[in-house]
C-alpha cells in the first residue's frame, strides 16, 4: 500500500500579518515531483524551509516516513534528529550554489562530505563514489580535485546535486535550482535532473516561478498566493486549464513571453 512520504497539515509560519506561509496542507508521494509556483513573496521558499525542517512552523503538523518506515513528527523532532534527516533522508538544493557547496574544498571533498558524515571511512571508496557521481551529473571526473570556485555556474549546480544525491536521499527539496543560469545551461541541467529523478525514484519538491521548468519536471503543481495554496492538480491540468484567475494570469504571463 502506498502512502505519502511527507504529509503537511495546516502548516503556518506568519512573519507579519498575511506574510509567510498560512495554513498549507499537502502530500508528497513516493517518486513524484511536486512543483510549487507563485509570484515573488507568495511564500514558496518559506514553505520549503518548513517542509525540510530548516525552520519550525508556528502551528500545523508535518509527518515524514523514512526508508525504514519510521514515522517522524517533524514539528516535535529534536534539532539533532532534524539535522540527521537533513543529511540522510533529505537533500537540499539551494538556488545559489554558494549556499550549498564548500567553495574551498575540492569537488570530491564536497561530494564525499555526506558519506563521511554518515560514517564512511574508506578513502578509496569515497573517491570512487565521488567520481561516479561526477559522471552522473555530467561533470568530467578528472575535475575531482578542482575546487568549485573555478567551476561555471551550471557545473556548480551539478556539483550541488551530486553532493546531495550521493547518500540516496528519499526526498529532495529544490529552491529555484536553475534560477541563476542562462537558458541553454538551464535546459541541459533540467534534462539531467529529470533523468536522475526518474532513475533514482526519489521524491522532489521544487520551487520555481518558471512555468517551463514546472511543465518539464513536475508531476503535480501547487499554486501559491499570499502564503496560501489557491490551486493544485496535475501539472498539465493546472497549466492548460487554470481555474483561479491568479493562476490564469501566471500562465498567461509566460505564454506571452514564449
Amino acid at each position: 500500500m502506498r502512502e505519502p512520504i511527507l504529509t503537511a497539515r495546516d502548516v503556518t509560519r506568519e512573519y507579519a500579518p498575511g506574510q509567510g506561509c498560512l495554513g498549507v496542507s499537502l502530500d508528497v508521494w513516493p517518486g513524484e515531483v511536486l512543483g510549487i509556483v507563485g509570484e515573488s513573496g507568495s511564500g514558496k521558499s518559506t514553505l520549503l524551509r518548513l517542509l525540510s525542517g530548516q525552520e519550525s512552523p508556528d502551528s500545523g503538523t508535518l509527518q515524514f516516513i523514512d526508508r525504514h518506515q519510521t514515522v517522524w513528527d517533524l514539528c516535535s523532532s529534536s534539532e539533532s534528529d532534524l539535522r540527521y534527516l537533513g543529511r540522510t533522508e533529505f537533500g537540499i538544493i539551494h538556488q545559489n550554489p554558494r549556499d550549498g557547496l564548500r567553495l574551498r574544498i575540492s569537488a570530491g571533498g564536497n561530494i564525499g562530505e555526506r558519506l563521511m558524515g554518515v560514517g564512511e571511512r574508506h578513502y578509496g571508496d569515497i573517491r570512487a563514489e565521488a567520481e561516479k557521481w561526477l559522471a552522473e551529473v555530467e561533470i568530467d571526473p578528472s575535475r575531482i580535485d578542482d575546487r568549485p570556485a573555478v567551476f561555471s555556474g551550471g557545473m556548480q549546480q551539478r556539483l550541488q546535486i551530486a553532493r546531495n544525491l550521493v547518500t540516496h536521499p528519499k526526498l529532495v527539496f529544490m529552491d529555484e535550482p536553475t534560477g541563476g543560469l542562462d537558458v541553454s545551461v538551464q535546459a541541459k541541467l533540467l534534462d539531467t535532473l529529470k533523468r536522475l529523478v526518474h532513475d533514482l525514484g526519489i521524491s522532489v519538491v521544487i520551487v520555481t516561478h518558471d512555468m517551463g521548468v514546472a511543465r518539464l519536471l513536475a508531476d503535480r503543481l501547487l499554486v501559491m498566493k499570499s502564503g496560501q495554496v489557491i490551486e493544485s492538480g496535475l501539472t498539465d491540468q493546472v497549466l492548460d486549464d487554470p481555474h483561479a484567475a491568479y493562476t490564469q494570469q501566471l500562465v498567461a504571463s509566460i505564454l506571452q513571453v514564449n
Binding site: 543529511r87 575540492s106 571533498g109 562530505e113 555526506r114
Partner: peptide, 9 residues
C-alpha cells in the same frame, strides 16, 4: 564528518 573532509583533502 567535516574532520574527515579535511583529511580527505
Amino acid at each position: 564528518g567535516v574532520m574527515h573532509v579535511k583529511l580527505y583533502e
